[in-house]
Design a protein around this nucleic acid. Structure first.
Length: 561
RNA sequence: UGGCCUAUGGUGUAAUUGGUAACACAGCUGAUUUUGGUUCAGUCGUUCAAGGUUCGAGUCCUUGUAGGCCAACCA
């Protein structure tokens, strides 16, 4: 049988081409380079899966490198959260690296550049430097300090390092070309003075290197062969290569930067800055709020690492702009959860059913399948009694033929239990139904083997025993934004599109087997959806987060009419 | 009034590098089902435009068009 040709994305094509061109496979090395200034989100998951996936495919090491060159925004908390998230996704990094580990090497190289006349200290303020940059269509102009002597530059740069200046007094710039058509090449800043404590180097430094100067050199130091980043860095590639040229030793691996389009997800935002606003303005409870598209939020919501990795593989990687529908993410969640989540019964919006011909006070332990997808099936006991709760929307006094659920005079199967028939309703003075009175067929018990037990009735309902039910808190989540592209409208702020109903909290009644459910355990509430135990759960009260609903073809039928 | 990048079903991604445009999601129809779930079967619909090269173009060439990115002492 012919081997199936695996289709490759453009990144893999580049690597294959390099390999064909003679690049040694043993020299392949990748990296995932987050800045520790926020939590990882679903967009990063794509990058993580790309880089670590490449590592797995080519049996190559992948470094986790923190791009920590800006002590103003970066924090230890984020480093820990990022490591936790990458691990949770199931990836193993080769080395844990920090750009800050290279500060001394970077400094030494900068001194060499100064000596070669390729870098100089500029003593103008930020506004002036910005003005001299020119515009995309007009060239910039030289700084009056551009031609300082090597000696003066060396002396000033050392004083900058020694903390003899205030922030903003001087910067170190690469001397390239102020008329370059690529604005990034117009004497980019390499170092700025910042009297800020760094989460790793403390107060050792008061000059910090800029991204462009740091990133490529870090790749080079680590001997990363392929450095993948998002499209907005495409213009930076020229600078990346220029800086590399200054230090490159031809016996070593020369890192190659290539760019891919970041993934956008509908009905949310995927930008650390915007996610930070949601956190800071209290729209959500934190970076790991289950409505957040962060990895920790998705985790708390009940997503599995497998489903996220499968999602990343499914959407692939390319260079064009994109907007991926959340329904695909939800599909990936259901696909995996369907296989692994134990089925249980819980009623979210209860209405009481009294089975009038069932003995008062009697409790029967009925057998229930844990998961029909399991290979050797396993079972648990569920208590049945005269009074049960069913879902309010599962009963109607009258309904048409399409309504398979309980209606007056109609029959329905109680999952794992008996067939019941609705006989009458009890209403309060406002006309609201408070109880449904039914009769049951004692011979129809599920699994009892009687002809009645296998009788076909159109509808099957989930239920819980009133006496044995466990009240639990259920947090029902909906999309955080009510429009597909909250960032698209240029007139309005994305915050204007927040869905006010993204969270509804309710008390539900669950079968008693859930009494000892532990945080992060995932269940399928039958006929409702997938739910995950939240870490807010206590001894007295279990809290469930709704991960995602089941596919609901009944809702579609109803919406049509 | 510049440079760089990108255009393939509603969405996302492929196409053995010039040889039958495919896969997944979404939608729709039906079958099965003690979850209106799952599963299964079927169905809808696509190469930005116009030229050109070629026996043959999503792929190569030309000219357009549309969208994104680029002027932080952020990354």
């Amino acid at each position: 049988m012919a081997e199936e040709v695996k289709s490759l994305n453009f990144i893999e094509h580049i690597i294959e081409e390099d390999l064909r061109g003679g690049f040694d496979k043993n020299n392949l090395r990748f990296r995932f380079p987050p800045e520790p200034n926020g939590y990882l989100h679903i967009g990063h998951a794509s990058s993580i899966c790309l880089n670590f996936g490449l590592g797995l495919d080519y049996q190559s090491p992948v470094n986790l490198r923190f791009d920590d060159t800006n002590p103003e925004k970066e924090e230890r908390e984020f480093v820990d959260a990022i490591k936790r998230d990458v691990e949770w996704l199931g990836f193993e990094w080769d080395k844990e690296c920090y750009a800050s580990d290279y500060f001394q090497q970077l400094y030494d190289w900068a001194v060499i550049l100064i000596k070669q006349g390729k870098a100089y200290v500029d003593s103008q303020d930020a506004a002036t430097i910005a003005q001299q940059k020119g515009t995309p269509t007009t060239p910039g102009s030289d700084s009056p300090f551009r031609n300082r002597s090597v000696e003066e530059n060396l002396e000033l740069f050392e004083k900058m390092k020694n903390g003899e200046f205030q922030a903003g007094e001087h910067v170190l710039r690469a001397k390239i070309d102020m008329a370059h058509q690529n604005m990034l090449m117009r004497d980019p800043i390499m170092y700025r003075i910042m009297h800020k404590e760094h989460h790793r180097t403390g107060n050792d430094w008061c000059i910090y290197p800029m991204y462009d100067w740091t990133h490529g050199e870090s790749d080079y130091i680590e001997q990363v062969s392929h450095s993948f980043c998002t499209l907005e860095f495409a213009m930076h590639r020229e600078l990346y290569d220029w800086f590399l040229d200054q230090v490159y030793d031809t016996n070593k691996v020369r890192p190659k930067q290539r760019e891919f389009a970041r993934r956008n997800l509908s009905h949310t935002v995927v930008s650390k800055r915007k996610l930070l606003r949601l956190v800071q303005e209290g729209v959500v409870t934190g970076w790991d709020d289950p409505r957040m598209p962060t990895i920790s939020g998705l985790r708390r919501r009940g997503y599995t690492p497998e489903s996220i990795r499968n999602f990343a593989d499914t959407i692939g990687i390319a260079k064009r702009e994109n907007l991926i529908d959340v329904s695909l993410l939800e599909f990936c969640a259901r696909e995996h959860l369907n296989k692994i989540a134990p089925r249980v019964m819980a009623v979210l919006d209860p209405i009481k059913v009294v089975i009038t011909n069932y003995p008062e006070g009697q409790i029967e332990e009925l057998e229930a399948e844990n998961n029909p997808e399991e290979d050797p099936l396993t079972y648990r006991k569920v208590p049945f009694s005269r009074e049960i709760y069913i879902e309010r929307e599962d009963f109607r006094e009258e309904a048409n033929r399409k309504f398979f659920r309980l209606k007056l005079g109609g029959e329905v199967r109680l999952k794992n239990a008996y067939i019941i028939k609705a006989e009458s309703v009890v209403k309060d003075e406002d006309g609201h139904i408070t109880e449904v009175h039914c009769t049951y067929d004692p011979l129809s018990r599920s699994g009892s083997g009687t002809p009645e037990s296998t009788r076909k009735v159109k509808g099957t309902l989930h239920w819980v025993s009133v006496a044995k039910a466990v009240p639990v808190e259920v947090r029902l989540y909906d999309r955080l934004f009510s429009v597909a592209e909250p960032e698209e409208d240029k007139e309005k702020d994305f915050m204007d599109f927040i869905n006010p109903e993204s969270l509804k909290v309710t008390t539900a009644y669950a079968e008693p087997s859930l009494k000892n459910a532990q945080p992060e355990e995932r269940y399928q509430f039958q006929r409702l959806g997938y739910f995950c135990v939240d870490r807010d759960s206590t001894e007295e009260k279990i809290v469930f987060n709704k991960t995602v609903g089941l596919r609901d073809s009944w809702a579609k039928i109803e919406n049509k009419s």
